[in-house]
């Protein structure tokens, strides 16, 4: 079993590279793969328009997809382990809803109170949305962490998280009711999720932040493995459950907050990728699952980003639709096949 880990990781890495190239080469403007390849390696003798499209638009977008996918997958893995619930994911616990609430406040209230539609403010508007999303997500996360230190059962905590999500959505509904149409549209577009909204400096900031945050997940590997045994066994093995919960929830909460702020609330990916990894690598060991989720999350996001921008489609499909439409059948197939093999044993 262990022997298949490294080859599998290598296969996924190879696929990531292939999809990276395809993401760079394919799009609404067709650029020959060979030219794309040269531009990637810094050739200056190619068409400057092509170079511009690739270096300023497609490469950043692809990088954003990679780190966002990895981040959501890791956060989903952590949530599923800490709550010992296969349906847990970044979008439960209301952290995503918190981010949406933050954005809703910024987008919808600026029009009504400031008298100016945020959607017309360009860069400042983008920044405000990002800050709003992070603030909203962290606020909800702080609330959950506070509750987690007081409530014992995982299920209770999960239900409270879901309830907080509902409350956030309800407030968003009220805000929408009082907002101008233009702002609602901006909010809805943000809500569809996108890897291409981030550009320029913001992109570098986002990718840098994720490159710092993602490796930190390895620090929680032992904690997560112990949590698998259940609270009492974990405690007996010397784990401080309260602190473990605090660390895991805060860490994955911050990941979700950052990704959601820049890419919008992307559903499904965080829930599905950990299951896919467990099925492919046949392990619950976080020493293997952590790198597996980083790679698989990146791969999944790249595939979705590619499909969303398939040639022939004007502009780009909302990422949220693609993740579920493409991802759900894949995950169901893999899980089914696994089940069959399990029973055949």
């Amino acid at each position: 079993m262990k022997r298949s880990v490294v080859p599998n990781m290598l296969i996924i890495t190879a696929l990531i590279m292939v999809l990276f190239l395809l993401n760079v080469a394919l799009g609404s403007v067709s650029i020959p793969t060979r030219a794309a390849w040269h531009i990637l390696w810094g050739a200056t003798d190619q068409d400057p328009i092509w170079a511009n499209i690739i270096l300023k638009s497609r490469v950043p977008q692809t990088l954003v997809a990679i780190v966002a996918g990895a981040g959501l997958a890791i956060s989903g893995l952590h949530m599923q382990t800490v709550f010992r619930n296969p349906l847990a994911g970044p979008s439960v616990l209301g952290i995503c809803s918190g981010a949406s609430l933050g954005v809703a406040f910024v987008v919808l209230l600026s029009g009504s109170i400031g008298g100016m539609a945020l959607s017309r403010m360009g860069f400042a508007g983008d920044m405000a949305m990002t800050v709003g999303a992070i603030a909203g997500a962290l606020a909800v996360m702080a609330l959950i962490v506070y509750v987690s230190q007081r409530v014992k059962g995982n299920v209770t905590l999960l239900i409270i998280g879901v309830m907080i999500g509902y409350v956030a959505n309800a407030i968003i509904g009220v805000l929408k009711y009082f907002s101008v149409e233009e702002d609602i549209r901006a909010y809805v577009v943000w809500g569809l999720g996108s890897f291409s909204r981030v550009s320029g400096n913001q992109m570098s900031l986002f990718v840098t932040m994720m490159c710092i945050l993602l490796p930190l997940s390895f620090l929680l590997v032992k904690t997560l493995n112990l949590l698998l045994l259940g609270d009492q066994y974990a405690r007996n093995l010397g784990l401080n459950i309260k602190r473990a919960r605090l660390l895991v929830i805060s860490y994955s909460g911050i990941l979700v907050a950052v990704v959601t702020a820049y890419c919008g609330p992307i559903n499904f990916l965080g829930l599905a990728v950990p299951h896919l990894c467990r099925a492919v690598f046949r392990t619950s060991d976080h020493r293997i699952l952590t790198p597996a989720c980083v790679l698989m999350g990146a791969l999944f996001a790249l595939a979705c980003s590619l499909i969303a921008r398939m040639p022939g489609i004007e502009g780009a499909l909302p990422v949220n639709s693609v993740t579920a439409l493409v991802g759900a059948p894949v995950v169901i197939t893999v899980l089914f096949r696994r089940r069959k093999e399990d029973t055949a044993e």
């Binding site: 698998l228 045994l229 066994y233 007996n236 467990r278 619950s284 060991d285």
Partner: peptide, 16 residues
Amino acid sequence: KAIGVVLTEKTDLRNM
């Protein structure tokens, strides 16, 4: 390092 426990409840562990 002083006390080891074995509990009644089954763990829902898989794939380990």
